[in-house]
Computed example of a mutant assay.
Amino acid sequence: MADTEKWEILALQSEFDWVLQHEVPAAVKQLRTVVEECARHFPLSVGKIVTPPKLEKFVMATASHNAQDSIKCIVTVLGDNITNADINIKLHKNTSQYHGQLQTEWKLQQTQDAANHLQSCCYYLENMDDGIIKSADEALHAMNTVQAFLSKGRNALIIPKKRTIDDLVSSRNMKSLIPNLPSDLTVSFYIQGHKLIFAVYLLSQSQGHVKFDTFQAECSVPWLSEVIALFSDALQLCQQLKDKVTVFSQYKDANLLGSRCVNSDVLEDLYSSCFRAS
């Protein structure tokens, strides 16, 4: 091995050790801060972070330019539950009108799901010993694990689970409405991004199959915007650290990927040969 190559390996090893000893712990500490801040914005407790739920009232309405269809819903939300809703529905394709309320709570499962994933992330980061990461493999594994928790948490809020019309019609939530909905209507509350959405489905029969038209009212929820932004910030921190560590993976000949330090005998030989040459 040429002396120049030996010095390059030594310099590379020194830089890699610096990343593992200083930048990785600093990044993990920053991640903990961002994830904990995200947990504080949730309207329910997440792990050790206890946030008393507060009542919030939102007015949900169809877009003002939609004059033919009128959907208005005033909801009261406590934590991950809609505790009260005053619903008015008037659709031009449906001669009947509906005015009703909730008699029992309507659970927003997406909020609880996102909180559960965030809680798992909090526990994982809390239990990480700052000195436990001693190799690129360990750093990448840790960041992949954190990213998985964060992605699932964010996706729970951004991508609502698809449900069939049969699922919606037979849902126990339908029984919480008084009076009962007309047989050609069903409704759903769900979260999508920073918005709470009230969807109304007008059902019809066509050649033995159920068809439906969808209408919706919506409102922005401030805490959702803050939480989604913090999820994204934490994911970006993970990716930045992964990118930095991955740079060293191309130097497999230097044994950097799987070990924090090159074998001490190898380092000693490198130093000795370089000094002899000089």
Rank of each mutant, 00 (worst) to 15 (best):
L108D: 05
I82S: 05
S64L: 11
L108Y: 03
T83M: 08
D129S: 15
K93Y: 10
Q109I: 13
Q110I: 10
W106M: 02
N88T: 07
T76G: 09
E105G: 05
K93P: 02
L91R: 15
Q110S: 12
Q101V: 07
T83F: 03
Y123I: 02
T104G: 02
D137S: 14
L78N: 09
W106Q: 04
A114E: 04
L102D: 03
D113Y: 11
N116G: 06
N81L: 15
S70T: 05
D69S: 14
Y123S: 00
N66E: 14
T76C: 07
E138T: 01
K90F: 06
E126G: 07
W106V: 01
I87A: 01
L125A: 10
Q101R: 14
D86Y: 00
A63Y: 12
Q119P: 05
Q112M: 15
G100T: 03
T95R: 13
T111K: 08
K72N: 00
L91F: 01
I132V: 10
A115T: 05
I82N: 03
K134Q: 10
A85C: 06
K72G: 03
H117R: 01
N127L: 13
I132H: 13
K93N: 12
C73V: 13
L140Q: 09
I89N: 02
A67M: 07
Q103K: 07
C122H: 01
A139I: 11
G131I: 08
T95A: 05
V75Y: 06
A85V: 01
T111L: 10
V75M: 07
K107L: 13
A67T: 10
S96H: 03
G79R: 11
I74C: 00
G100D: 04
I132E: 13
K72Q: 01
A136K: 08
A114P: 00
T104K: 07
D113T: 12
D137F: 15
T83G: 07
L125N: 03
T95S: 14
G131R: 15
I82C: 04
L118K: 04
L125P: 03
T104W: 07
I74N: 02
K93D: 12
T76L: 12
M128C: 09
N127A: 05
H65T: 11
S96P: 01
D80Q: 10
N84R: 14
L125M: 09
N127T: 00
A85Q: 02
L140G: 04
N88M: 03
N66T: 11
A67G: 05
V75N: 06
Q112G: 12
L78D: 06
E138G: 09
C73Q: 08
I132N: 11
G131D: 11
Q109C: 09
A63M: 13
T95Q: 10
D137A: 12
Q103L: 11
C121T: 04
I82E: 02
D80M: 04
K90V: 04
D130K: 14
I82R: 02
L108K: 06
V75P: 02
H92V: 12
V77C: 09
K72V: 02
N127F: 11
D130A: 15
